[in-house]
């Protein structure tokens, strides 16, 4: 029930931000009706359990995003260099299973998404043991093997862990 209220409130906030008309009672009521309808559909679809986010995650997420953004910029530079200067930065496509130390599905999903979001590496398969990653070069796979990202996601997940 508390999840339903959270979902409804955040959906209505989202609606308010997108509409930008905060002075017409009719429009506000229509927005309320549509968010109520969507919340009802979400409840009927029984998808609310998927929304159970550990509260601590929200606090640690901005720091992780900042770190990930820097990684994405670095990875972009690397791939763009390989595109324009194939002689100096040759590609060496590599595919490897990498271990994933996260305990929950959510943690592994965050890890795999982070891998895919950084250009040069794409997560292809994922299971309890690890992630199958295709990398543009042997270097980026070696980087991932260093497990800096893996440790960060695990720390994001449970608050301590990793280094």
């Amino acid at each position: 029930m508390i999840h339903l209220l959270w979902l409804g409130a955040s959906l209505y906030g989202f609606w308010l931000l997108l509409s930008g008309h905060w002075d017409s009672g009719l429009l506000l009521a229509l927005g309320g009706a549509s968010t109520a309808l969507v919340t009802l559909m979400a409840w009927r679809m029984q998808r609310l359990d998927a929304l159970s986010f550990p509260a601590g995650l929200w606090r640690r997420l901005p720091g992780y995003w900042a770190w990930l953004f820097v990684e994405i910029i670095k990875a972009n530079q690397d791939v763009v260099r390989r595109i324009w200067q194939p002689a100096r930065f040759p590609i060496s496509p590599t595919m490897a299973w990498l271990p994933a130390s996260q305990k929950t599905d959510l943690g592994r999903a965050i890890y795999a998404n982070s891998i895919t979001l950084t250009p040069g590496t794409v997560a292809i398969e994922i299971d309890e043991r690890g992630v199958l990653v295709h990398g543009l070069s042997a270097e980026v796979i070696a980087d991932l093997r260093g497990a800096a990202m893996d440790r960060r996601v695990t720390r994001l997940e449970d608050g301590e862990g990793g280094a």
């Binding site: 994405i72 910029i73 972009n76 791939v79 763009v80 595109i83 590609i91 496509p93 595919m95 895919t116 979001l117 950084t118 250009p119 040069g120 590496t121 794409v122 295709h134 543009l136």
Partner: peptide, 14 residues
């Protein structure tokens, strides 16, 4: 195909 995927990743992110 798989290497082109990385090129498309550049345009999708940064």
């Amino acid at each position: 195909f798989y290497t082109r995927l990385h090129a498309a990743g550049v345009t999708d992110t940064l």
